[in-house]
Amino acid sequence: MSTGAKKRIMREYGECMSDTPPGMKITFDEQNMTEWEILLDGPEQSVYAGGHFKLKLTFPNEYPFKPPVVSFKTKIYHPNVSNDDKGSMCLGLLRPEEWKPPNKVVAVLRLIQTLLIEPNPDDAIEPSIANEYKENRKEFDKTAKDWVKRYAK
């Protein structure tokens, strides 16, 4: 990774520290600054309220020319998070072809928060969950809350 990229990550970290989005805690390992650990509280107005989700944000070597990679370490029932051990999230500005260098980590973190409040079933990574979200919202809410209790406490 170029020194320019490292510098930028440092800058972005400073920016996030000075103005962390509410309900979010960022842990940063100086030995490995390309992997951030994020502790995210389920937004109050969402079905994930009360849950604490651990996420990993990985910066590729090509950052900022390639987007950071977001993965949920805590299991979450969500149309836009893959329901496997990766827990990956890949949509919107996180898509490689849609990413552009001026995008910043803060925008990524906000995107994640927004998606917890309002999932985007039309751009889902888990079609069955997306379908349930659209067709049977009650059942979706129930399972999502159940998973919060089981995995995100």
Binding site: G92, E97, E98, L111, T114, E118
Partner: peptide
């Protein structure tokens, strides 16, 4: 499409 998708991603449908 991409603009829309970003918008969708950020701001929902």
């Amino acid at each position: 499409g991409i603009g829309d998708r970003i918008r969708r991603g950020l701001f929902g449908p």
